[in-house]
């Protein structure tokens, strides 16, 4: 059953990805990208990553879609037609990269392997520590906020940085920027 869900969801993702590649309508692509995130979220649930699924749904399907739509109203809806032919260079690059990754999977632990090295090293301590020391049920939260809390501080700083950047870029009225774009630095006499 798990396997079936897994495969169906992956297939849907594949179809969406191809559709994104194919469509020339940016609005459609944006919506498809949202759908992609939502389907991913479903798959993440199937993979036991409920926290991540939750976030991916909220961010990928929610906020980032809204931002893209906002961008589209400010720019335009359609991609230029000429850009659609298959370009050899990028294709080659992608094939090589993909082949490399697949080559790397050969020595990977099998999917779902309960004895994968990653499960044996640090994880057991986290499980025990969360149960005994921190005493909260959600292990992900325990790691996120305490064991690896510093990463999360960094993550908050990343979000803050994005806010600073967007404010710097879009914080002012458009006319001010247009006026500014043409000037040279004021020469101090």
């Amino acid at each position: 059953m798990e396997l079936l869900i897994d495969i169906v969801l992956l297939a849907i993702l594949g179809i969406i990805a191809v559709a994104i590649l194919w469509t020339r309508h940016l609005f459609v692509a944006t919506m498809l990208s949202g759908a992609y995130s939502l389907t991913s979220a479903a798959l993440l649930v199937a993979l036991d990553a409920v926290d991540v699924a939750f976030t991916e749904a909220a961010v990928g399907a929610g906020i980032s879609t809204v931002l893209m739509l906002g961008t589209l109203t400010l720019t335009r809806r359609r991609e230029k037609a000429t850009n659609r032919r298959v370009s050899i260079g990028p294709l080659l690059l992608v094939i090589v990269t993909g082949a490399l990754l697949i080559y790397g999977t050969v020595d990977m632990p099998a999917f779902g392997d309960p004895n994968a090295p990653a499960l044996l090293h640090v994880v057991p301590e986290y499980l025990a520590g969360t149960r005994d020391d921190i005493q909260i049920p959600n292990i992900v939260t325990a790691i996120l906020a305490s064991y690896r809390g510093f990463d999360t501080l960094g993550e908050t700083a990343v979000i803050f940085t994005a806010g600073v950047g967007v404010l710097l870029l879009l914080g002012r009225r458009r006319e001010e920027d247009e006026e500014a774009g043409t000037r040279r630095p004021e020469r101090e006499a």
Binding site: D107, P109, A116, P117, A118
Partner: peptide, 9 residues
Amino acid sequence: GLLYMVTGT
């Protein structure tokens, strides 16, 4: 990620 996968750290 790949490194983590094979080493767990």
